[in-house]
Design a protein around this nucleic acid. Structure first.
Lengths: 179, 179
DNA sequence: CCACCATGTGTACGATCGTACATTAAGGCC
DNA sequence: GGCCTTAATGTACGATCGTACACATGGTGG
């Protein structure tokens, strides 16, 4: 029998690999066995570290949400003027759409779970709240909600439709929305 | 053995019931057996009418998309002035959010599939195209894209976050976006 | 150095699924 | 009215899954 690996952050690696499996196979196609294989971990290690599959999915998608939220925060923090704010928002949409197609899949999988299960809705709720709060450094709460919404809509529509939209037209929409 | 039922639009009823099953259990929890039970149809009838589960899902979600698209078209067609256009758009968001929570689930399930499978992306593509085209009766193509996007974003964020947003604040956002 | 206990692992079980396919019922045609 | 084509159905098979759980293992306190 293979000697047991001393493997301190095995738990984190499992979570990490879970995101890859979700991105490739969807939540529906994510199984203990697939994740275990990819993380190079015995099957029994799954139920040892996570009570059940749902807990694993929750932890993985929480990590996903927090990562994106923090990246957005970082972009906004760097902005000082209103023009830089607009530039940062345009980056949300265009850089992320072109950069990592995996993120769209993960985000939509999360939303889908959130629509039916409160435990996952808590994740999206915290995410959106953090996102709006970051925008509220620049604009009032109502406008922050609008801007956050159009970021979401543009991101989804541009990704799913694979239309080439110019940064300029996105910037125009944001500028209009800022009032 | 039960006599065979003469059942002319059994196929349509199956599709209809499939939408209910998806709404309740998600695509992942939608099985031949669950749909068959709900449509009061033998299991064998599933593979007789549909080549496989994917075909069933595609037909069901196509129906869902076309229904919403037509409802939106009808609302827009009734609008003559710009104010009525805005009112119609606000109805998209507020009436639909409050009215039928099932639709959010179905829509997000569709988007999730679309993010990974071209066959489902074709459904969302046709839907979005029809939606934009309806808006282009009132505004230029670029603005139509923006408005369509913010409808999407407001719909998702308002639904998932269950925030009570006033029709007025939504109307304000749309008015700003129209330029 | 040894015994014990927390940590980690392999396997097996019961459930569920998609789908194939042999079988049955129905109704038109002679 | 009987036959035969076609529409419809019931069942069974192989695969896969989540999870439980008995067992192995290695570090550690005595």
């Amino acid at each position: 029998m293979a000697t047991r690996r001393h493997d301190p952050d095995r738990r984190n690696r499992i979570i990490e690999k879970t995101l890859e499996v979700i991105a490739e196979n969807g939540v529906a196609g994510t199984t203990h066995r697939k994740v275990a294989r990819r993380a190079d971990v015995p099957l029994g290690s799954m139920t040892y570290h996570f009570a059940d599959l749902d807990e694993l999915l929750r932890e993985a998608l929480t990590l996903h949400a927090m990562r994106i939220a923090e990246r957005h925060d970082a972009r906004l923090s760097a902005a000082a003027t209103l023009d830089e704010l607009i530039e940062a928002i345009v980056d949300f949409i265009h850089v992320d759409v072109d950069g990592s197609p995996h993120e769209l899949v993960l985000t939509l999988e999360l939303y889908t779970l959130a629509a039916r299960q409160p435990a996952f809705r808590a994740i999206t709720h915290a995410w959106m709240q953090q996102s709006r709060r970051a925008l509220e450094r620049f604009v009032d709460a109502e406008t922050a909600f609008d801007v956050d919404a159009i970021i979401e809509g543009l991101y989804i529509h541009a990704s799913l439709d694979q239309l080439t939209r110019t940064r300029d037209s996105t910037a125009r929409a944001i500028r209009r929305l800022l009032g």
